[in-house]
């Protein structure tokens, strides 16, 4: 059961491709309540993430996630670079030297990523950030226990989508949308939208494999 190091690499390449493909959609989402460059930063970062892991051998599952995070960290910049590189790097640290990726370990890794991102940016749940999609996805994954990854990630992707919807009812408390206050209501947080793209990509990549 679980994904091998090589399968994990393929999974994250699929994630990177999906984020890059979502560039215009993400930029559109950001234009509503930010400065309209979120998709550009995400695409730059995830193109680099793909480059870091494509055609390379990794010793363990954690190293794949860390390498993807380094790619984002070195190129993306902006809030999205800091946050999404922290996601992949801290998850990679948590996954460590495992040679397969299993649902419980991924759930624990994403829970650690939630804490690391909170510490990095000072945001909390309900502040209308990507955490409002990531935390429910991590929780949904944890609730799946030992379930196979394809089914567990389907649940996580659904939770992330629900999280994106929930951000529409939130008033931004951090980032460039914060001064909007009540005017940010009705719009989804672009970072949360990106997070949902990532989980959807993992779900779709594994669909039919479980």
């Amino acid at each position: 059961m679980g994904l091998s190091v090589e399968d994990t690499r393929a999974l994250l390449i699929a994630v990177a491709d999906s984020v890059v493909a979502a560039k215009d959609m993400l930029t559109e989402a950001d234009s509503a309540i930010g400065d309209g460059d979120h998709g550009i930063g995400m695409a730059v970062g995830f193109e680099a993430a793909k480059k870091e892991i494509e055609g390379k051998d990794f010793a363990d599952v954690g190293a794949v996630w860390k390498a993807a995070g380094m790619g984002i960290m070195k190129t993306s910049g902006g809030a999205c670079g800091a946050v999404f590189s922290t996601l992949f790097r801290s998850a990679g640290k948590s996954l460590g030297a495992a040679d397969t990726l299993e649902t419980p370990a991924l759930a624990a890794a994403l829970a650690e990523a939630v804490d690391a991102i909170k510490a990095r940016g000072g945001a909390n749940l309900g502040d209308k950030t990507m955490l409002d999609a990531l935390a429910p996805a991590a929780d949904a994954l944890a609730a799946q226990g030992d379930a196979p990854l394809p089914a567990a990630l389907a649940a996580a992707a659904a939770a992330a989508e629900a999280g994106v919807e929930a951000t529409k009812q939130m008033v931004a408390k951090t980032g460039k949308a914060r001064p909007l206050g009540e005017r940010s209501l009705g719009h989804a947080d672009p970072g949360a939208v990106s997070t949902a793209v990532i989980f959807r990509a993992m779900r779709d990549h594994l669909a039919g494999q479980g």
Partner: peptide, 12 residues
């Protein structure tokens, strides 16, 4: 120097 309107990456 970051990308347009975006903070520079830490390694820079």
């Amino acid at each position: 120097c970051g990308n347009i309107f975006a903070a520079p990456a830490p390694n820079i």
